[in-house]
């Protein structure tokens, strides 16, 4: 019953129009999520590369990632709204801070995980620090780096939904209005859309990952898989 109501709601053309319509809300949701992840990446990727490459500040990276991860999502966002007042930016800052740890630790771990023999060979063949970073460490770090971005995206998409509580646009608004008016089919529809959005964004990044991760690494991962499974 609630499902068929939900289908009715989803297929009702009226819900797909106007400033409160589904497309607008989806657009807002994507905009906030992507913006937060991009800004977080701009900070976390260079920092992760630096720490992984030089080995300096590794303790700091681990500590800060764990500390940030432990923060309650909604609490953080609310805190910034209380500190900075209502508006998009306080909420976005909270979202960015949430997105940093997975990207930072993914990038750092990606560089850190490059086989020591490979790094040693790169140095021994006369690569400069920058050449080693761009020609060896970054390409080899890509799977874990992108993995970090993927979990950041999932986390941020979920948090944007919750941030409707503090006034941010996005599909959370629909969820909230459904709750206020006791229209559970609307809440369910919004939840389904949020989940769908998360899956679609994740698949887009997965496709990008397949494009940019060097083929040799995919081959190596496949070759390593049977032994890993055997343990």
């Amino acid at each position: 019953m609630i499902f068929s109501n939900m289908i009715d709601w989803l297929t009702n053309g009226a819900n797909w129009q106007g400033p409160e319509g589904i497309p607008t809300r989806v657009g807002e949701h994507v905009y906030y999520a992507v913006l937060a992840v991009l800004v977080a990446s701009a900070v976390a990727v260079p920092l992760g590369l630096f720490v992984g490459h030089t080995g300096r500040g590794a303790v700091f990276v681990v500590a800060i990632s764990n500390a940030l991860r432990a923060l309650p999502t909604l609490g953080l966002v609310t805190l910034f709204v209380l500190l900075l007042g209502l508006g998009d930016w306080p909420v976005l800052i909270g979202l960015i801070i949430l997105a940093v740890p997975p990207i930072l630790s993914g990038t750092y771990a990606g560089v850190q995980d490059v086989d020591r023999g490979v790094i040693d060979a790169a140095r021994g063949m006369g690569m400069t620090g920058w050449q080693r970073l761009w020609k060896v460490e970054v390409p080899n770090a890509l799977p874990l780096l992108i993995g970090g971005v993927r979990s950041a995206v999932l986390q941020v998409v979920a948090t944007v939904a919750v941030a409707a509580f503090v006034g941010l646009g996005g599909l959370g608004r629909i969820l909230l209005s459904g709750q206020k008016t006791y229209k559970f089919e609307v809440m369910l529809g919004a939840a389904v859309l949020i989940a769908l959005l998360a899956v679609v964004l994740d698949q887009i990044i997965a496709a990008i990952q397949r494009l940019v991760v060097p083929k040799g690494l995919t081959v190596a991962a496949k070759a390593a898989a049977p032994t890993r499974g055997g343990k």
Binding site: G117, D120, A121, P214, G216, A220
Partner: peptide, 13 residues
């Protein structure tokens, strides 16, 4: 320079 683990770049042919 040649080392024990060979240290070939896994991402390159």
């Amino acid at each position: 320079y040649v080392i024990q683990q060979a240290g070939l770049f896994p991402h390159r042919t």
